[in-house]
Amino acid sequence: MTSMLPSALRLPPALHRHRGLIILAALIAVLPLALRNDYHYDVVINAGLNAIVVVGLNLLIGYAGQISLGHAAFFGLGAYVSAILTTTYGWPALGAMATGIVVVGIVAYVIARPILRLKGHYLAMATLGIGVIISIVLNTEAQVTGGPDGMSAAPFTVLGYTFASEQSWYWLVGGALLLTVWLSTNLIDSPIGRALRALHGAEIGARVVGIDTTRYKVLIFVISAMFASFAGSLFAHHTPTVTPSILGFIKSVEFVVMAVFGGMASVMGSVVGAFIMTLLPNVLAAFEDFEPIILGGIMMGTMIFMPKGLVPTIAKKLRRKEAP
């Protein structure tokens, strides 16, 4: 991606790498002008939380070439850790969130070594299995988790300020998303990112230049699970009740679909994919029974006409126009 901006708007090199971040920040700043009620805010906040998960997941899928059908479980685990620690044990929200991220990181690390030995469909199946197991545990340990009825987290309070209104949540999630995008962009441009890109296309090639491919795969799996946990913790404080349905298999598939739809190996693609796939069902609700058909049609159309995903395809078109 050389540029998504018209050449008149070209940024100095130091900022160029973060142009996506700058555009995103500008969009987040002006979007409230179009949001007219709490329902609008709620949809956009959930889109932002999904985007955080998908940006992390795309590091794994798009850059490391691994697939996970279990990311909803990490999202859910983060949500439950926050809910349990803040309500049952009265922990501060940020402490609970950090604990959730660490716990999920450890869980991901423990399962990553055996799982990442697998390839392709087997890896997808194994991550799917992890999701199912975590879901069953949370469903059955009712005395801790509230079982199928779920539980609520305490309000999100930081330094005495409680995020209560939808507006305050909007800015909180917006900031969290920007932080995620910034971290991911830096990660991709680091030696870790280069190692990941190398092992994606040519794993043997990567190993014989001295890249410990297993280590990097494990690392990125853990990092992307931690992003999911981060979003899950925020979600727990924002939603009225955390139930096991948030970490089901379908949710994991939705995350993968968002990443693929928006564009693999594209941070901004992940954000766009998450927003569109979160907003679409709400927009299409007017069509009632036809909603799944229209949604499915859009998905198929994208995969047929834009197999690289939305953002990379559009970026390429713009680049062509710019430099004929």
Partner: peptide
């Protein structure tokens, strides 16, 4: 493990070349 052998001074040019396609020659 493979990456430690590289450290000792064994470099392989693998079958099928295995260059990193999307990266530049210099990278």
């Amino acid at each position: 493990p493979a990456h430690k052998r590289v450290h000792l001074g064994i470099a392989q040019v693998p079958e099928g070349r295995q260059v990193f396609g999307p990266m530049s020659v210099e990278d």
